[in-house]
Computed example of a mutant assay.
Amino acid sequence: MRDAKALAESREIEIIVAERALRDALGGPRVMAQQLRHLAEVSERPNITTAGQVP
């Protein structure tokens, strides 16, 4: 429930992902794929800005 409040459309959110977070498959490939799908879905919302990755 807390995550839903954080992603509410009344807030502007910028997503920046560390490169290591994309390289290290914590939880295994299946978990990593689910997390990336979730980020892709969330980034489609009008109040979310995806700034990319940082080294």
Rank of each mutant, 00 (worst) to 15 (best):
Thr49Arg: 11
Val54Ser: 09
Val54Gly: 03
Leu26Arg: 14
Val17His: 00
Ile15Glu: 05
Pro29Asp: 14
Gln53Val: 12
Arg2Asp: 00
Ile16Cys: 09
Ser43Lys: 04
Val31Gly: 03
Glu44Lys: 13
Arg2His: 01
Ala6Ile: 03
Glu19Lys: 09
Ala33Asn: 12
Pro55Cys: 07
Val31Thr: 15
Ile15Asp: 06
Ile13Cys: 03
Ala4Gly: 01
Ala40Asp: 11
Arg23Ala: 11
Ile13Thr: 07
Leu22Tyr: 07
Pro46Met: 02
Val54His: 01
Ala18Pro: 09
Ala6Met: 05
Leu36Tyr: 07
Ala40Ile: 15
Glu12His: 04
Arg11Ala: 05
Gly52Cys: 00
Ala40Trp: 06
Ala40Pro: 05
Leu26Cys: 12
Ser10Tyr: 00
Lys5Phe: 02
Thr49Ser: 08
Ala51Arg: 08
Asn47Tyr: 04
Lys5Pro: 02
Asp3Val: 01
Leu7His: 02
Ala25Leu: 11
Ala18Asp: 15
Ala33Gln: 14
Lys5Asp: 03
Pro55Leu: 09
Arg30Asp: 13
Gln35Arg: 13
Pro29Gln: 12
Ser10Phe: 04
Val17Ala: 08
Ser43Met: 08
Arg23Leu: 10
Gly28Asp: 11
Gln34Glu: 15
Glu12Leu: 05
Glu9Gln: 02
Ala21Asp: 10
Gln34Ala: 13
Ala6Cys: 03
Ala8Asp: 05
Arg45Gln: 09
Ala21Lys: 05
Arg30Ile: 14
Glu9Cys: 04
Asp3Tyr: 01
Asn47Phe: 02
Leu7Gln: 02
Arg45Gly: 02
Thr50His: 09
Ala40Arg: 15
Glu9Thr: 00
Leu36Met: 14
Glu44Val: 12
Ala21Tyr: 08
Leu39Cys: 13
Thr50Arg: 06
Val31Arg: 08
Gln35Gly: 13
Met32Thr: 15
Lys5Cys: 01
Ala51Met: 06
Asn47Arg: 04
Ile15Asn: 05
Ala21Val: 15
Ile13Leu: 06
Gly52Ile: 02
Ala33Trp: 07
Ile48Asp: 02
Gln35His: 11
Glu44Leu: 14
Ala25Asn: 13
Val54Gln: 08
Met1Arg: 00
Leu36Phe: 09
Ile48Thr: 05
Asp3Phe: 02
Ala21Met: 12
Ala51Val: 10
Ser10Ile: 00
Leu26Glu: 12
Ile15Gly: 07
Gly27His: 08
